[in-house]
């Protein structure tokens, strides 16, 4: 047993604590006892229980699951693209998913949640393909600019659809980000899927380590780097696009969390995948809680308050690489 696993129980406790905190605080506050009794002894005739179980709980769980997925997607994208600054929203994957979702919702208004997820994945994957074909031998800056430009373009098309079809409320949801309006039914689909995808990634932890070292290393170790690069990329895009379907375009989270985890636990994916997921769940659930406390502020604003300074810090620290 490696000592890097010793902290795992603490982090898992952290997830539970953040779940309970997020259940307690929000637009209106509830005591710990009430939350506890909802978990242990649910009584649907009680009005408080009803609110907590039907509105608050799906939202908190959605935030936990989304944070888990987005952060792991960010981690994998950083390894696959060899770029410290990669993250689903910076690379434009979120914009692609967002556009595909809006397009699908326009064509078939009575779309089920699963098909929304699927169309999001198709859109995200398309951007992923372009991004990966662009990154081959270019500088980190080139990749980030590519992502920013593609995002701008895709958001313009989305805007166009929104304006010509009068869909303003959709747009605000996706750009502001937030875990509201989720049902337990959606979660029952997303959570198992996310866990299966992450287990799949976990089996490729070693291959991801090799990818991180670079293409030459992969070749000299005899790895089929094309296969693993694509496989991990597809899973990362899938995680990111499902998260978009649930909580909209969340910025910085996929950048922030993997960096913190790598600072503590090093670069081995065996550890970072698990810790990134759990840390991501905690941070997103708590950000969503703060967003609720501050009069339903967009969760992106909350995350950006930590994320933006952190981004600038990373750039400054590793400046030589980008300058």
């Amino acid at each position: 047993m490696d000592r890097r696993w010793y902290t795992l129980p603490i982090i898992v406790m952290g997830v539970l604590i953040s779940f309970i905190l997020a259940m307690m605080f929000g637009a209106s506050h509830y005591a710990f006892g009430e939350v506890w009794s909802v978990i242990t002894n649910l009584d649907m005739t009680d009005k408080t229980h009803q609110i907590l179980y039907e509105i608050r709980m799906p939202r908190v769980l959605a935030a936990l699951v989304a944070g888990f997925m987005i952060s792991i997607a960010g981690l994998v994208l950083q390894s696959v693209t060899h770029n410290d600054l990669s993250e689903p929203s910076i690379l434009g994957i979120n914009a692609g998913a967002n556009l595909a979702i809006i397009l699908a919702a326009l064509l078939i208004p009575t779309l089920s949640f699963v098909s929304i997820m699927l169309s999001g994945f198709a859109g995200g994957m398309l951007v992923g393909l372009v991004i990966l074909s662009v990154t081959r031998s270019r500088s980190p800056l080139h990749l980030i600019l590519a992502g920013a430009g593609i995002s701008l373009f895709l958001y313009a098309i989305t805007d166009f659809l929104v304006i010509t079809n009068d869909l303003g409320q959709y747009m605000t949801f996706f750009t502001a980000g937030g875990a509201s309006g989720q049902s337990m039914g959606n979660l029952a689909i997303v959570a198992p899927l996310a866990i299966v995808l992450v287990i799949g990634l976990y089996f490729m932890a070693k291959e991801l380590d090799v990818l991180l070292f670079g293409d030459e290393m992969a070749v000299s170790l005899g790895q089929n780097r094309g296969l693993y690069k694509w496989l991990t990329l597809v899973i990362a895009v899938m995680l990111a696009s499902i998260a978009v379907a649930m909580v909209g375009n969340v910025v910085f989270l996929g950048l922030l969390v993997p960096h913190i985890v790598k600072m503590i636990y090093g670069n081995m994916h065996k550890y970072t995948i698990i810790y990134t997921g759990l840390f991501g769940a905690i941070i997103f659930a708590l950000s969503d809680m703060f967003a609720r406390v501050f009069n339903e502020a967009p969760v992106n604003a909350v995350i950006a308050m930590i994320g933006l300074p952190f981004f600038i810090y990373i750039i400054k620290k590793r400046g030589g690489q980008y300058a």
């Binding site: 929203s89 967009p298 995350i303 950006a304 933006l308």
Partner: peptide, 8 residues
């Protein structure tokens, strides 16, 4: 990055 953050 700032463009992304400020949009939030």
């Amino acid at each position: 990055a700032t463009a992304m953050g400020v949009t939030g």
